[in-house]
Design a protein around this nucleic acid. Structure first.
Length: 874
RNA sequence: GGCCCCUUGGCGAAACUGGUAAACGCAGUCGACUUAAAAUCGACCGCCUCUGGCUUGCGGGUUCGAGUCCCGCAGGGGCCA
C-alpha cells in the first residue's frame, strides 16, 4: 500500500473519466430490477453553479448512489430550465442572442457538475429551450386546449412595467414583480389560461395522500388553494333609483352571524358599484381612488378600511322590515366569491374596523363560553371563536356550527324567482393560471389568429412552432411582435392571411412536466411514452423550499392534465419531497460600508474573539451577520475554487456534515478544512487497515473475542448508517461513519505486538476495510474508488453493491443500564441483554448509592424499562 | 393580524415511539515531534460554592421519569393576509 498523500485532483479526474467510459450511470428503461427515480430540481443556466446547487446535488447523489448500491435500477437525470428573462436581459446588454448566452452557460455548468462526480445519466440531458423539448410542450398545450383545460379570456392582469410583461398572481410578491421588483400595475389584456381551478378540489384533497412530503409544504399549498365552505346568499334590494338589480348576491363562510349583519360591502368593480358611480361623482371618484390604491390583497388588508354609502338598501333575509345599507368598500375583491360580502362587525376584525369607521354599531351574536350574554360586549377586537348563539332569534342557544346548518336549511327552502335564496358553495382562492408572456425567450404558444376562423390551433404536424433566430432587443416589448415576418402566416383552416400568437408561455410551464420527459427524452413522436408510467412518480424529489407553492403546484396540476389527455397514468408526480436548507455565509463589510468577499479578507482569532482584516491593506473589516450567499452581499464562495483546492469529495462531505439537511448550513473555511483533514485520515487508515488485512482468509468457526469486537463495531455502524441515509439524515450518517473510523483507528493503535494479529483479526480488519469504503462511497465516491482499487478489488466500488449488515452481530450481549432513584441518575449496572426483571432489580438494589438513598427502607416501587433504564422510587 | 415552525455548550449540532442530555464535528487550551512554523499525533474542553450540586429560552403542569407531552409568556423564522 502506498503511503503518499491522497491526490484528489488526479483521482477525481481519473474516476470521472472511467465512469463515463464504462457508462456506469447510464440507465436502461427495461432493466428488470425495481425502479427508483431520484430527481433534484434542475438548474436555471444562469452562468455558473453556486453552493446551493452543490448542496442540492450532493444530497441527491448520495440517495442515487445508495439506492443503486442497494440493487435498484436508479434513474438520476439532469437538464436545464433554460427559458427565461435573464437570457433576454443579457442579450440586450451584450448585443448577443439569448440562445448563445444560454447554451454557453449550459456548457460551463455541465462541466462544473461533472467535476462534482455526480452519478447522473447524461445521455438523458434535456434543455427546455430546445425545439425537441418545446415541440412536445406545444403538443400538450393543444391537447389541453382540446380537452377544455385552456381558455382565453380578457382579464385584469398584473403588468410588470420594467420587464414589460404579465405576471401570474404567484409571481407578484408584496405588490412587486418577483424578478424585477417593480411595482405592479393593473391592465386589461386577453390572455391564455390553464384551468388549474378545474382541479382545485383534488389538488387540495390529495395533499393528504402525500405522506412523504414535508407537512409545511402541504400546509402552504392547502392555504394557497384556499378551499372554504360557505353559503351564497341573495339579499333582496329595496326599491331604489340606483340599480335595477333585484338582488345582491354575497358569499359568506359565516352564515351563522347573519343576525349580526350591519352592512353589505361591494367591490369597487362590482356592477352595482359602477351603477352607483354613474349617478354619483363622489362614488365614482372613490372607485377611481380604490383602483389606484394598488392591487395586491396585502395592500388592501393593511390599508385603512374605507367605503362609501351607495344609498341602496337591502332586506335582511329573515326580516323584510330590517334594511341593511350597501357600501362600496376598498377591501372587497371582485375576483373572490361574488365580489360582495355582508359585514358582521362583532365577529370579523375587518368588518369591525369598517363598522367603527362608518359608525355602524356592533351586535354580538356569538357569546364565548363562560361569558354572560347580558354583559358580553365587543371592544376593538372581533371575536371569532366558538360559543353559543345570542341575539339571533330562532338561532339563539345553538352552536355556530348548528346555526350555519339551520340558516342554510331555511334559505335553501326560501325561493326568489326559481332559485333558492341561499345555496351552499365551496369556494377557492386559487385562480386560473395565466401563462401568456410578452417575451421572446420562451415556448411559443401554438395558435394562429384568423379574422375569419378566430383562434386556430397550429396543426400537430406543423409542430414545433420554432422561435425565429433573427431578432433584435433594441426596444422594449416583445421582439416576436416586432419581427418583420414571423407572425404573418396563412390560416391553417381557411388559408387567409392570419397572425401568429406572439405571446410565449410562462417558464413555469417548462418545468411542470420535465420530470416526465426524462423517462424517454429522445422520443420524437410524443411528449411521453409507457416509460413515464414505469418511472413515475419520482420516488425522491429534492430542492429548495422557495418552490413550495409555484413549481410544485403547477407540476401537480400538469400531471393531472396530462392524465386527462392520456399522456400519463399518475396524477401525483412526486411521491417523496425533500426541501433542503440554504447555504449561508458570514458577511464582511469595510468601514465605508462596502462589502468584501471571503477571498479579500484574513481572519484572526484574538482573545476578544474573531477579527477580520483586509488582505490588501490590513484595514479592519466588520464581521457581519450570516446570510444567504448572494452577489449583492458578496459573501459567495465559488464551487470551482473549492473543488480545485480541496476536491469534490471534500466539498460534498462538508456540505452534508454538521447541519441537518433541511436546515441552513454555514459555509466556513474551517469546516471545509476539517472535511479535507478527514479525507486524508481515511486515506491513512485504509493504508494501515490493508496492511493488517493482508492475506486474510476468512473467519474460523469460533471467532476470537478481539475479532468479534471489530465485527460488532462495523456491523452496528453499518446498520445505523443505512438507517440515517434512508431517512435522509446525512449529518448523522456522517457522524456514524466518523465514529466507526475513530473506533477502528483506536483498535489499530491498541495493537502493541504483531503476535496479537490472529487470522481471525486479519479477517475482521479485511471485512471492516471493505464495509467502511462502501459506506462512505455515496458521499465521497472518488476517494472510495481509489481506496477500493488500492485494496485489490477487481471492479469499481460503484458496481460493488451494498454490504450486508449482520443484525445478530450488531446486537449487544451485555448492556449497561442506568439506575435512577426518584428519576435522578445515581449509578449504573451491567447485566445480560436478556436478563430477567427480577435479576435487574436485585442488581440495582445492591448498588451502594441506592442503598444509601433507601437508608434501610423498602423501595416504594421499582420501574424497569427493559434495555433502557431502572428507576427506584423511594 | 391569523396560521405554522424553531429556541440544547464558545459555534454547527446529537438524543428512534417520554428513559444515561451534549454523540459527531468546528473553534480553543495543554503536551509530543520540529531550529521554528505548518501539517500530524495525544490529552482536556457545559456551568458552579466541585467526594457534591446545577443545566435543554422563561414560568407553570402531567408523569416513577420531560429537551421530548400540555398550558401560558418571551425571542427568532416562515407562509398567508
Amino acid at each position: 500500500m502506498k503511503s503518499e498523500r491522497y491526490n484528489s485532483r488526479e483521482a477525481e479526474a481519473k474516476w470521472q473519466k472511467k465512469w463515463a467510459e464504462l457508462e456506469t450511470f447510464r440507465t436502461s428503461n427495461d432493466d428488470p430490477r425495481p425502479k427508483y427515480y431520484v430527481l433534484e430540481m434542475f438548474p436555471y443556466p444562469s452562468g455558473r453553479i453556486h453552493m446551493g446547487h452543490v448542496r442540492n446535488y450532493a444530497m441527491g447523489d448520495v440517495v442515487a448512489r445508495y439506492k443503486r448500491a442497494r440493487g435498484f435500477n436508479v434513474l438520476h437525470p439532469m437538464g436545464w430550465d433554460a427559458f427565461g428573462m435573464p437570457a433576454e436581459n443579457a442579450a440586450m446588454q451584450n448585443k448577443s442572442h439569448p440562445a448563445k448566452w444560454t447554451y454557453e452557460n449550459i456548457a460551463t455548468m455541465r462541466g462544473q457538475l461533472k467535476s462534482m462526480g455526480l452519478s447522473l445519466d447524461w445521455s438523458r440531458e434535456i434543455a427546455t429551450c430546445d425545439p425537441s423539448y418545446y415541440k412536445h410542450q406545444q403538443r400538450l398545450f393543444l391537447d389541453f386546449l382540446n380537452a377544455g383545460l385552456v381558455t382565453r379570456k380578457k382579464s385584469k392582469v398584473n403588468w410588470d412595467p420594467v420587464d414589460q410583461t404579465v405576471l401570474a398572481n404567484e409571481q407578484v410578491i408584496d405588490g412587486r414583480g418577483w424578478r424585477s421588483g417593480a411595482l405592479i400595475e393593473q391592465r386589461e389584456l386577453t390572455q391564455w389560461f390553464l384551468k388549474i381551478t378545474d382541479f382545485a378540489e383534488d389538488l387540495s384533497e390529495s395533499l393528504s395522500t402525500l405522506d412523504r412530503w414535508p407537512e409545511k409544504v402541504r400546509l402552504m399549498q392547502r392555504n394557497w388553494i384556499g378551499r372554504s365552505e360557505g353559503l351564497r346568499v341573495r339579499f333582496v334590494t329595496a326599491p331604489n333609483n340606483i340599480s335595477d338589480a333585484k338582488t345582491i348576491e354575497v358569499y359568506t363562510t359565516r352564515p351563522d352571524t347573519l343576525f349580526g349583519a350591519k352592512f353589505i360591502a361591494l367591490a369597487p368593480d362590482h356592477p352595482i358599484s359602477l351603477a352607483a358611480g354613474a349617478r354619483s361623482p363622489e362614488i365614482a371618484a372613490f372607485i377611481e381612488e380604490c383602483r389606484r390604491m394598488g392591487t395586491s390583497v396585502a395592500t388592501l388588508e393593511t390599508a385603512e378600511k374605507k367605503g362609501m354609502d351607495t344609498g341602496l338598501r337591502v332586506q335582511h333575509p329573515f326580516d323584510p322590515n330590517w334594511l341593511i345599507p350597501v357600501y362600496v368598500a376598498n377591501f372587497v375583491l371582485m375576483e373572490y366569491g361574488t365580489g360582495a360580502i355582508f359585514g358582521c362587525p362583532a365577529h370579523d376584525q375587518r368588518d369591525l374596523e369598517f363598522a367603527h369607521s362608518q359608525g355602524l354599531g356592533v351586535t354580538p351574536v356569538v357569546c364565548p363560553p363562560q361569558q354572560d350574554p347580558a354583559t358580553f360586549e365587543i371592544g376593538d377586537i372581533a371575536y371569532d371563536g366558538d360559543g353559543v348563539m345570542i341575539n339571533s332569534r330562532f338561532l339563539d342557544g345553538l352552536t355556530p356550527e348548528a346555526a350555519q346548518e339551520e340558516v342554510a336549511r331555511r334559505l335553501g327552502q326560501t325561493h326568489i324567482g326559481n332559485e333558492p335564496q341561499g345555496a351552499r358553495q365551496v369556494n377557492f382562492k386559487l385562480r386560473d393560471w395565466g401563462i401568456s408572456r410578452q417575451r421572446y425567450w420562451g415556448c411559443p404558444i401554438p395558435i394562429i389568429h384568423c379574422e375569419v376562423c378566430g383562434t386556430v390551433p397550429v396543426p400537430i404536424k406543423d409542430l414545433p412552432v420554432t422561435l425565429p433566430e433573427d431578432v433584435t432587443f433594441d426596444r422594449p416589448g416583445n421582439p416576436l411582435e416586432h419581427h418583420p415576418t414571423w407572425k404573418h402566416v396563412a390560416c391553417p383552416s381557411c388559408g387567409h392571411p392570419a397572425r401568429r400568437e406572439t405571446d410565449t408561455m410562462d417558464t413555469f410551464v417548462d418545468s411542470s412536466w420535465y420530470y416526465a420527459r426524462f423517462t424517454d427524452p429522445t422520443n420524437t413522436d410524443a411528449p411521453t411514452s409507457a416509460a413515464a408510467n414505469h418511472w413515475l412518480p419520482v420516488d425522491q424529489y429534492i430542492g429548495g423550499i422557495e418552490h413550495a407553492i409555484l413549481h410544485l403546484l403547477y407540476s401537480r396540476f400538469f400531471a393531472r392534465a396530462m392524465q386527462a389527455t392520456g399522456h400519463l397514468a399518475v396524477k401525483e408526480p412526486f411521491a417523496g419531497l425533500f426541501t433542503q436548507g440554504m447555504v449561508v455565509h458570514e458577511t464582511y463589510r469595510a468601514s465605508d460600508g462596502s462589502w468584501r468577499t471571503p477571498g479579500e479578507i484574513r481572519l484572526e482569532t484574538t482573545p476578544d474573539g474573531r477579527k477580520a482584516f483586509a488582505l490588501a491593506d490590513g484595514a479592519p473589516i466588520d464581521i457581519g451577520p450570516i446570510e444567504k450567499m448572494s452577489k449583492s452581499k458578496r459573501n459567495t464562495v465559488d464551487p470551482d475554487e473549492i473543488i480545485g483546492t480541496y476536491g469534490a469529495d471534500t466539498a460534498r462531505w462538508f456540505m452534508l456534515s454538521d447541519s441537518p439537511p433541511d436546515r441552513d448550513v454555514i459555509w466556513s473555511e474551517e469546516g471545509v478544512q476539517g472535511a479535507a483533514r478527514y479525507v486524508h485520515q481515511i486515506w491513512r487508515l485504509v493504508g494501515e487497515l490493508s496492511e493488517l488485512a493482508m492475506g486474510a482468509k476468512g473467519f474460523s468457526d469460533n471467532v476470537s473475542q478481539p475479532a468479534l469486537e471489530i465485527r460488532k463495531i462495523v456491523h452496528g455502524h453499518l446498520m445505523r448508517v443505512q438507517d440515517h441515509i434512508e431517512r435522509l439524515r446525512f449529518n448523522t450518517a456522517i457522524a456514524e461513519i466518523r465514529k466507526m473510523t475513530n473506533a477502528l483507528s483506536s483498535s489499530i493503535a491498541g495493537i502493541s505486538d504483531p503476535a496479537q494479529i490472529t487470522p481471525d483479526l486479519r479477517a475482521a480488519y479485511a471485512e471492516a476495510l471493505d464495509i467502511m469504503i462502501q459506506m462512505f462511497a455515496p458521499m465521497m465516491p472518488h476517494l472510495a474508488e481509489e481506496c477500493w482499487a488500492q485494496t485489490a478489488h477487481a471492479g469499481p466500488v460503484s458496481e460493488a453493491g451494498w454490504p450486508k449488515a449482520d443484525a445478530s452481530l450488531a446486537a449487544q450481549d451485555t448492556i449497561t443500564l442506568p439506575v435512577q432513584v426518584n428519576g435522578k441518575k445515581r449509578g449504573e449496572i451491567e447485566v445480560a441483554a436478556d436478563a430477567q426483571n427480577a435479576l435487574v432489580e436485585s442488581e440495582a438494589l445492591k448498588l451502594e448509592v441506592v442503598a444509601r438513598e433507601l437508608n434501610g427502607r423498602l423501595p416504594k416501587k421499582v420501574i424497569i424499562v427493559p434495555k433502557r433504564i431502572v428507576n427506584v422510587v423511594v
